[in-house]
């Protein structure tokens, strides 16, 4: 699986209700050393409820400038949360998307936790 299999994909909760789109992946560098850096491990998915457009990096910091771009982007993405990778029940199959009936989706576990997406 590569990152673009997950990015832009619709996210459903266990009951099948849409909760948003994957707008970013979050990694942590705590794996066994790979060369000089620690290996990256997928920590979770950043899910935005209203839009699949880019967060333009505004999720990473508390930057409020430049007006009006920062406030607009934040407004588009309000309610964005981080779902841990352990809370993901199903990821898109290889042949999802080939059949128009089967849109690729990410399904979350029952009782998953919404963590704040900010860094």
């Amino acid at each position: 699986m590569i990152a673009s299999d997950l990015l832009d994909v619709r996210v459903l909760d266990a009951g099948g209700t849409p909760v948003g789109w994957v707008v970013d992946l979050r990694f942590v560098l705590d794996g066994p050393p790979d060369g000089r850096l620690a290996g990256a491990r997928l920590h979770g998915l950043v899910v935005s409820p209203r839009t699949r457009s880019s967060f333009l990096g505004y999720e990473r910091s508390r930057v409020r400038h430049p007006w009006p771009i920062a406030p607009l982007v934040r407004r588009r993405h309000r309610g964005t949360f981080l779902a841990h990778w352990e809370d993901v029940a199903r990821v898109p199959d290889r042949d999802d998307g080939t059949d128009p009936e089967r849109e690729p989706v990410v399904v979350l576990q029952v009782g998953y936790t919404r963590y704040t997406a900010g860094l």
Binding site: I2, A3, S4, L7, D8, R52, S53
Partner: peptide, 8 residues
């Protein structure tokens, strides 16, 4: 082309 996102 694979890693250029669809949106792009």
């Amino acid at each position: 082309t694979r890693d250029l996102p669809r949106r792009l």
